[in-house]
């Protein structure tokens, strides 16, 4: 990294060229092309109402994809996010349920579910760090475990009829923008700053590039990993809270399949699955692109099954193009 910076200082032209060929810029170009094509496909697509509404729908994936970026940057993965979301949703309803065993105030139930979500993530982190089980296996196991707990606790009962004020988060607007989109924006800003501007963020890249080296250079690798997995659990809890508020009920199957959507967004955003590189901006472009494709293709008359074919193809080709360009860049260097 330092070497590149030194080179840039010597040659401003190369710096500009490198900026143009950065992954995020390429992705942004792909996104722009997609938007133009989708706009040509339907005149309903590029309207403020539609775009804001899509913002509502992408919230859960967005919230989970942000910490997923951290995790993938370190070379890890978290498959349990959807299950944590299901467990948090169930606990939120179960603890609050006025005819249930606890009957807590709603605020307390929300806080409790967020705490449990964080705890679930911390448990993932502990197993990965302290026992040394690879992230994929750990979270594969807890994917089943947390979903099982959600099913076991809920006993297939859903909890409904929340007070009207609870729905503001998932259905209301603030300054004309869906409430949850503000939440997404805040977290995007926080995570972007943390990843690119703090010692903690740079340490995550170091861990992903060379874990042993990071350890020897004094980075508390274990603690950092536990923090990001815990953060991932917390964000899954946030997603659960917003989702319950949006759909007004709790079910134990909520969030199933969320992990693959989130990983797809992160990977599409240019974060290397092997760790060591990636950015929050890329992830943001990733989940926005996926959501707009889903929406725009539907508006243009493509059915859901056709849409997922297109998204799969775009995912492969975006990475292919990006790989090609990055290799050309490094070859030209």
């Amino acid at each position: 990294m330092t070497t590149i910076r030194q080179m840039d200082e010597q040659n401003p032209g190369a710096k500009f060229r490198r900026f143009l060929l950065r992954q995020e810029i390429i992705l942004f170009i792909i996104l722009t092309i997609a938007i133009i094509l989708l706009t040509l496909g339907s005149d309903k697509f590029l309207t403020v109402d539609n775009l804001l509404n899509q913002g509502r729908l992408l919230t859960e994936i967005a919230l989970v994809a942000l910490p997923m970026t951290f995790i993938i940057v370190t070379g890890g993965i978290d498959l349990s996010v959807g299950s944590i979301m299901g467990l948090c949703a169930i606990l939120l309803g179960y603890m609050w349920n006025p005819s249930g065993p606890f009957q807590w105030p709603l605020e307390l139930a929300v806080i409790f579910s967020l705490v449990v979500g964080t705890l679930c993530g911390v448990i993932n982190g502990l197993i990965i760090v302290r026992i040394g089980v690879p992230p994929l296996i750990t979270t594969l196991a807890t994917l089943a475990l947390y979903r099982g707990l959600a099913e076991g606790i809920s006993q297939a009962r859903s909890v409904r009829n929340y007070p009207e004020s609870f729905y503001v988060l998932g259905q209301g607007t603030f300054l004309g923008v869906p409430t949850q989109l503000w939440v997404v924006l805040i977290f995007v800003l926080i995570t972007a700053i943390v990843l690119s501007r703090t010692v903690f963020g740079r340490s995550l890249y170091a861990i992903g590039n060379n874990e042993l080296g990071a350890r020897f250079s004094g980075i508390p690798v274990g603690v950092y990993k536990i923090i990001i997995y815990g953060f991932s659990g917390f964000m899954s809890g946030m997603a659960a809270w917003i989702f319950v508020s949006r759909v007004t009920t709790t079910r134990s199957d909520m969030g199933s399949g969320l992990e693959l959507d989130a990983i797809a967004a992160v990977v599409l955003g240019g974060t290397s699955i092997f760790g060591g590189s990636g950015s929050i901006i890329g992830t943001v472009i990733g989940f926005v692109l996926i959501q707009l494709l889903k929406n725009g293709l539907a508006l243009a008359g493509v059915t859901t099954d056709g849409t997922i074919v297109v998204i799969g193809t775009v995912l492969i080709f975006a990475i292919l193009i990006n790989n090609y360009i990055q290799r050309r860049v490094s070859a030209g260097k």
């Binding site: 539609n50 509404n53 729908l57 889903k294 929406n295 539907a298």
Partner: peptide, 9 residues
């Protein structure tokens, strides 16, 4: 999400 898209359409 599917229903939402058709409302917009």
């Amino acid at each position: 999400a599917v229903i939402d898209n058709y409302i917009t359409q």
